[in-house]
Nucleic acid binder design. Structure first.
Lengths: 183, 183
DNA sequence: AAGCGCATGTAAAAGGTTACATGATTAC
DNA sequence: GTAATCATGTAACCTTTTACATGCGCTT
């Protein structure tokens, strides 16, 4: 997959909001555990080191006596460019729900236009999925396994609701932007 | 996580329905790609080899001239026991949606009671999640990032719908079983 | 005195994907 | 004649988790 949202990228996106230490990031992610389960330190710190190597972030070391130094990471211009480039290219089709939500959070921070693009793209994908499901529905007969029928009904229900949600949100966001521009 | 649904286990569950070759499994999984993305051969064949090593499955080799032999895998008694034990212990909380759906498919094949247990357990978890979300809602103020508010609204909407869906399905399944028992 | 929060990190293992290797048969 | 489907597998790589290592300060 050319384009999954790895924690490396997500961390870069978070650092675009404000400089943070590894522990800060962990705490922030933990506070949003209702959304995405936060990565472990075993992936968090190496991810920061790798961003540092690529010059996508810089670090300011704040030494403290008898304790490990705090290390505050900030995004660089190179990092901002990389982030923008990544956000501009469409998310891989079939990407996970988690990837969609992660990107939703990052997108709102970059530009209103980018946010709309992201939501519209999601809408297009869910619509395709929805159509696929309806084709599958035709191929299902009474002999189909109960579990499969249930799973199918579940997925179809969720896809339908998600389409409604996306339409509603897109409507609201388009209107609010128009009114802002009219001001 | 003590209990994620790895492909290894899912394959074992599929073989409990009927003996299949690796390619058969791949084809079956592909036909359900609307549900779960099918594993690659690079994980499928090693998974089968490892099941074989643990005596959870046996293989019947059907040689064909000038072609790779077909290898039909069947679940053993040991395998059935392992599967039942695994299905009996509750799914890890915070398990992925994919894990829930995979198990849903397998559960329907084992026993009606097991299916109900699985769905009720899911209901309990989604209910907890739903409550958590309402607490988070209280902690959100107007200053909360737009993306986070949207992601929150998305997750809350979906959780609400899922609860409704689970209630509806549980209701139907309980009734249908009662009527069968009354016969 | 025990445990949690702070704060950083490393090493091993798990679990997967992608790309490669091989080769016949069938469909367009 | 070119591509897809059938059919098996291996090796290198990627990402992430789990468990370990260290140690201070605060609360119960």
């Amino acid at each position: 997959m050319a384009n999954a949202t790895s924690i490396r990228r997500f961390i870069l996106g978070l650092l675009a909001r404000q400089p943070m230490s590894g522990y800060d990031i962990k705490r922030f992610l933990k506070s949003m555990s209702w959304l995405i389960d936060s990565p472990s330190f075993g992936s968090l710190y190496p991810a920061l080191h790798s961003l540092l190597e690529g010059d996508l972030v810089t670090v300011e070391v704040i030494p403290r006596q008898d304790k490990p130094s705090r290390k505050i990471y900030s995004i660089t211009e190179t990092g901002k460019r990389a982030l923008r480039e990544w956000m501009e290219q469409p998310i891989a089709s079939g990407a996970s729900l988690k990837a969609f939500l992660m990107r939703l959070i990052l997108a709102s921070n970059l530009s209103h236009a980018g946010l709309l693009v992201h939501l519209r793209q999601r809408r297009a994908e869910v619509a395709i999925h929805h159509r696929t499901l309806q084709e599958v529905a035709g191929a299902m007969d009474a002999g189909t396994d109960l579990g499969e029928r249930l799973a199918f009904d579940y997925v179809l229900t969720m896809a339908t609701v998600e389409l409604d949600w996306l339409d509603r949100v897109l409507d609201q966001l388009s209107q609010s932007r128009s009114s802002v521009e009219a001001t």
